[in-house]
Design a protein around this nucleic acid. Sequence first.
DNA 1: GTGAAAGCGCTAACAT
DNA 2: ATGTTAGCGCTTTCAC
Lengths: 348, 348
Amino acid sequence: MRDVAQLAGVSSATVSNVLAQRKPVGPQLIERVRRAAAQLDYQVDRAASLLRSGKAQIVAVLVPSIDNPYFTSLIAAIEHNARVSGYDIIVASGNDEDAIERARLAALLSWRPAGVVIVPSTDAFAGRDLLDFARVPYVIVDRVPAHAGADMVTVDNEHAAAAAALHLLRLGHERVLIVASSLALANIRERVEGVRRTYLEAGLPAPQVLEAGLSFEAIGERIEHWLAGHGQPSGIVALTNFATLGVLAALNHLDLRVPADVSLIGFDDYAWMRVSTPSITAVAQPGERMATAAWERLHARIRGGQEPPARLKLRCSLEIRQSTRAVGPSLHQAGAPDVKGLEEARER
Amino acid sequence: MRDVAQLAGVSSATVSNVLAQRKPVGPQLIERVRRAAAQLDYQVDRAASLLRSGKAQIVAVLVPSIDNPYFTSLIAAIEHNARVSGYDIIVASGNDEDAIERARLAALLSWRPAGVVIVPSTDAFAGRDLLDFARVPYVIVDRVPAHAGADMVTVDNEHAAAAAALHLLRLGHERVLIVASSLALANIRERVEGVRRTYLEAGLPAPQVLEAGLSFEAIGERIEHWLAGHGQPSGIVALTNFATLGVLAALNHLDLRVPADVSLIGFDDYAWMRVSTPSITAVAQPGERMATAAWERLHARIRGGQEPPARLKLRCSLEIRQSTRAVGPSLHQAGAPDVKGLEEARER
DNA sequence: GTGAAAGCGCTAACAT
DNA sequence: ATGTTAGCGCTTTCAC
């Protein structure tokens, strides 16, 4: 930096101000400094900058698992947004465990990131006190703890699940199984509730719920076991992408065909769902929009925004494909009025 | 740190030495310092540490794309290994472009990472000079530039592709299409060569090659177009995961059944390939082993290892599933001696 | 084996 | 609008 200052014939403070666009500087000096910096291939030493200013041009991203494509697509979108604004990202995985989440978060915070994007590993949101103590702006994505005075971006889980349920309902499915990952997560409970309410409001018994776990291998086994013990539903709603995979694995194993033997609605929307045979009807979460919204919130806070924290709920869309088919008498065609009314109420 | 030193009744230098385990310190002092640090919840300021020492406990990971599950699984595995050794990771995407790769790499290097894991965006390996200039240890993964005096970890692409080809050959497939992403990448060319050589050595004409692009939507369209113009092969080898998806999309669209109408071997092995109907025969790359090997190399260099750079080639495995089936007279059952010989030569 | 002191390269506060 | 200067918190060198 000294060299740049010398070459441009200015002080180091001016170089700093030009490069960080902090204080107003005369246009000719700006030009001289820029040229000198370019000529010397100069890059600010982020360590020194960070040490002095106390803030890094970095945002930390903490997700429950880096192996889950849902979270990695979130990371990719955040990375893109952050980069455009000149921030690098550091990532870590909480491994679905509170203790690890805390430990990883502490490590990330020691970089003094300008902001943090966090998907809590559990509803306990074990990292909250660390974040608050560090006074770093943060935004909570996807999983939402009960009480948190912070910005949050999620999807409308109940609405999404209700749309899926309504689709099955219209196709005449009365015996439906919900495959949940873990009911300890609020967003999963909301999804369960969306399906339940839709069925109850239509005057049908509430679907059964299977809590199958977080890893897709385990999920497959549990489902297989459940189906053996409870008999076959006509439709299944899988509430996560791993649950969707697990259901398919189990059905394959039991030699049950989709949608001939059982209809399936998955959660999350991936390329393979479009190309598999049959293609999979699925609830598509707006991952990119979530990431963009989260970044906008965080960026505003980083720049000192003081609006009260808000919770943003985005709508999912139901991508109807080949894995769901009509069975028995269609309630919709039969013109059942309560279902029709429900539809309008929910799809407004 | 001053507080810790005071509480423990020692100098700050001693605190530093204890915490970083740099110089030998008396066991009682170690204990006192440790206790004081714990009591005050002390964490070293990484900025100051970095500024003074010039090295961060960070490794930079640069991949061509964060949207590709192949690369994200690599990131996940690297993150895990690095974390165990006390390093955080910063990630960036080169977006499959040399210029962006260079720019992102420059940004990452300004953090003075202890090491870099890089999957070059193209064979040009545009970041080489930056890495060499920064004198930072690095390891090149997956894609290997022609000349590079650095540690490299790849798979044996030619062998893997040959195994896939051999499988089709044994099943009697003589008219085979290779769907490549981009022939500008050496690893893709090696895969093409593996298939070609296997067929040529068996006395059969070389399979045709379709260069379909990097995005899976584009790939699907190109394949559809190709099939319309060239007629239908009996078997397809897709050389990347996106190519595999693209092939499936195209076949679906043309209403061709797998494996009844055409057999398919994919590249990379994901959960959905196991559970789709039919399940997809695929070349499984040892992603986790690659990441572990890469980390071991890098870690050794970070600690000052001076062995000459080496290229490590790992073996892939062929996961045989339902998407491939025998057609016509099986060359294998017919006991064609050249094929048999080939098999032994390649599967040693 | 331990402590004292210098200084890494930058930015913020202040002076001009 | 620009320059001067102090000091961020640690690690390293050197003296003991």
